[in-house]
Amino acid sequence: MAQNNLLLPQVAVVEEISTETSDIKTFKVASQGGGSPLEFLPGQCAMLSLPPVGEAIFSITSSPTEKDYLEFSIKKTGSVTNFLHEIEEGYQLGVRGPYGNGFPLEMLKGKDLLFIGGGIGLAPLRSLINYCLANRGDYGQVDIVYGARTPDDLVQRAEIFDNWPRASNTNVYLTVDVEWEGWDGHVGFVPQYMEEIGFAPENRIAVTCGPPIMIKFVLEGLERMGFKPEQVITTLELKMKCGVGKCGRCNLGDRYVCKDGPVFTYAELLNLPPEY
């Protein structure tokens, strides 16, 4: 029998699949007997197994306050994700995890929070946003700046349009990169929009996730607005295989992104080689 084989997944069931955009779907995954297969923190990841195609790691997009299932928003980029996009509800897959450090919840307590997301990068932020909204008393003001290329590329529409704007002391600012028929909201890139709105750095933590180029400009914008590197949090995405800091693939300086990350403050990143 296997003794603490870290790489062995458990079987779980895809309960629900919702189409977010032309290439992003959200998968609701539960244990065979029902309930979430894992206990986790916002920002942590899980490895999904689809034999015989393989395994890939994804951030968990649901909040830990949701005990019945795990949710993953997944974009088609390779063989595992292509395969995932073909399956139907009721399909069984393997799950192992949770992996990574998750967001520093203690550090966020009592603070105003600024979330800046782009495209599929909303996935890890969403877990934290819903966690904070479920524990509303622990956090100050919540501002969410989220954008995508077109209105059709925005994910979690029910939440970004309805649930979050209705939550107390919470603002949602949406933007799209290009003019689009039927879109009367803001048009422009996320980093610029963030600066246009303007956020004071006092008692505020910024959390950002999105395409690398967006993150680069967001970090610059935050610096201009007076945010210190310690006040800025981001999540990294590198190729990962084992999830437990041993296979060496996500090695970044003396850190392993799968284990010591994927969440880092910008201050921490400045001390690591820029290989991400």
């Binding site: 296997a2 790489l7 062995l8 997944p9 079987v11 015989p52 069984q92 897959l93 393997g94």
Partner: peptide, 15 residues
């Protein structure tokens, strides 16, 4: 380290 079998929608995994 693992054997698997996919039958219809069912997945069997064993170490």
């Amino acid at each position: 380290y693992m054997r698997f079998k996919v039958e219809n929608d069912k997945l069997h995994i064993e170490p």
